[in-house]
Design a protein around this nucleic acid. Structure first.
Lengths: 114, 114
DNA sequence: TCTAATAATCGTTTTATGGCGATAAGTTTA
DNA sequence: TAAACTTATCGCCATAAAACGATTATTAGA
């Protein structure tokens, strides 16, 4: 039996999410389930690359899939991933505003020095 | 000027978090700021490896550091990362309980078949 | 001013990841 | 059943990431 710890799973989930193409895939699928043939035209990546990315998200239990005739349909398994992404964005936005603030202060001190 | 988008930053943050050693470092630092010389004995990794991991977390704006004499002290910059990790754990725990449930159902059907 | 302590950085090796085209495998349709 | 469609997988290459030991730079203390 392959024991799974929460630590292993969280690294697996975080790794699956730490790629721009995969984040775009999640965004794309947030509108609802889609077959691969609908996903492909929306991305400038080869079919094999997209298939691989989808499988990584599937293996991380973030997506589920069903086979429907000759197509495979993917959908978000647990919508809580979007809460997660929102929280990341909130942290990222804080970082950006800190940068902007630092820039403003720098600008002020440069102006004072003129 | 190096423009930073939220998308770039979130990939950077997620990448920084998707490593078991770095998650342990965050856990270790959750008790409060620590210098590298206190961190090292708690990890079975070389000094250069730990230094690199700390720097990755620093570059992702997850840690901040100050130099104090001959030591460098690291601390959590934004405690919201812990909300993030808690949310990951909640997703991971859901996955584990689904696995357990699937195992239970499998066991039942195996028993029925005996 | 030596010496020890501390931590970052360099150079190297090994492993993982992302990308692609080609191929295979399954399904539908003609 | 042959052809077309759809998607997963294989093999390969290039780049990135993780690990280590050795080196460097800085500071504290003898």
């Amino acid at each position: 039996m392959t024991q799974k710890s929460v630590s292993d799973l969280r690294v697996k989930i975080l790794s699956a999410l730490s790629d721009p193409t995969r984040l775009e895939l999640l965004d794309f699928l947030s509108a609802g389930e889609r077959c691969v043939c609908e996903i492909l035209p929306a991305f400038q990546r080869s079919q094999s690359t997209i298939s691989k990315h989808l499988n990584i998200l599937y293996e991380a239990d973030i997506l589920e899939r069903k086979i429907d005739g000759k197509r495979t349909v993917y959908r978000i398994k647990d919508p809580q991933v979007f809460d997660l992404i929102r929280m990341i964005d909130s942290i990222a936005l804080k970082q950006i505003s800190q940068l902007a603030e630092a820039g403003r202060i720098l600008e002020i001190s440069l102006n004072n020095g003129r």
